[in-house]
Design a protein around this nucleic acid. Structure first.
Lengths: 210, 210
DNA sequence: TTGATAACCAAGCGCTTGCTTGGTAGCGTT
DNA sequence: AACGCTACCAAGCAAGCGCTTGGTTATCAA
């Protein structure tokens, strides 16, 4: 695992996905199952889980609704798998970004950028589902996803602790993730206002003033 | 309006509600319509709008599902009215709290406490619906609620601007509301850990360090 | 006493939902 | 040629959904 992460340190997004597919962590995006997961992620993010029907997802990839259940046991099973792949890809991306940043403060900035890019669909389609649709998951599925999310959060806390020794990293992270996720409902990265990089800098200034 | 707010400056929560009921802003909580709104607010907050059925709401107040439509035009009409009353009550409460706080920093602390109490159901049941269930509202209902929400946000921005001159109050408010709302999914005010007042202080320290 | 009104019940309609079933076309392997 | 496997279709079921309809009861003013 550690070795694999190290080996991936200089990979492009495309190659990172390929590597994770070979490891069996992600589903190949051009497979029927992968196309369904991607379509579901897009729709869940756009309309929400309950407002997205299996017929919507099927139509998105050009099959009939019943055929979905050849690939997944239930609608919730789709959501569960979306979350599992999303959280693992997001963490791989973040580890990659952290490794490239020199100073503790640069590492924190990289994490913030990383998550903002994920939230706004520029890098990890479906990331915001992890937070927004948490209640749509059954208790035991939550447990399963939580294990991987804990690892993701642990990485964050390490970075925060290094950049801001003294403050409570867990609390800071919780306030931070709320602030970042909420940008989903007001920030438009393609707009002519604030750019994503500028927003990241403002967030860094707020949570870790120089 | 200004006069009414001034007159309410020393009122208890109970009397504040009564005053707003007489003004026609809120529905009397012990009326059939009021009971339905309160039950709906609780359920929407607990399970989400789409996962709450009109049968759930009806059962909560002890009537049959069809009877709901004697009081409301549609299920969305219930959500709209919940939001309209919630945002107006929340603002009245906040104005009240701000008026009692002496310094700009105290006013900001009061706002943070106010909103935390609202989010965690200690003062304004259904407050988190305003943010979480925004997408469940039709476009024209959003427009209607937005007018009142803008007033609420404007009050916030004034307080932020006074406490932290120089920083962008709108951006700060957006990051802050995200951080606060997200506490809904991890902070338990009745737990033995952090108290709500302590949490408010930590948030104040983060967004407005001395 | 009458009539208006608010609040509700009983029953169910029309639609959408997640999901099931039985079958088939295409493909690579032996 | 026969087989097995993956991916899918065609059709529809059972349940749940928001909402409608027609009628009943209680309250209160005129």
């Amino acid at each position: 695992m550690r070795v694999a992460e190290g080996q991936r340190a200089d990979l492009s997004p495309r190659k990172l996905v390929d590597a994770m597919v070979s490891e069996g962590v992600l589903t190949a995006p051009d497979s029927p199952r992968g196309r369904l997961l991607n379509a579901a992620a897009r729709l869940f993010e756009q309309k929400g889980f309950t407002r997205t029907t299996v017929r919507d997802i099927a139509a998105e990839v050009g099959i009939l609704s019943g055929s979905i259940f050849h690939h997944f046991a239930s609608k919730e099973d789709i959501l569960r798998n979306v979350m599992l792949e999303v959280v693992q890809y997001a963490q791989a991306r973040m580890i990659h970004a952290v490794a490239r940043a020199p100073t503790p403060r640069d590492k924190l900035r990289a994490c913030i950028r990383c998550e903002l890019e994920a939230i706004h669909g520029l890098a990890v389609p479906g990331f915001s589902i992890l937070v927004i649709e948490w209640r749509s998951l059954s208790a035991q599925s939550q447990k399963q996803v939580l294990k991987l999310r804990d690892a993701y959060e642990a990485t964050w806390c390490e970075v925060i602790d290094a950049a801001r020794p003294g403050v409570d990293p867990a609390l800071t992270r919780r306030l931070l993730v709320g602030a970042l996720i909420h940008t989903h409902s007001w920030f438009k990265p393609r707009g002519k206002g604030l750019s994503l990089e500028e927003l990241a800098e403002q967030v860094l200034q707020t949570f870790a003033p120089e």
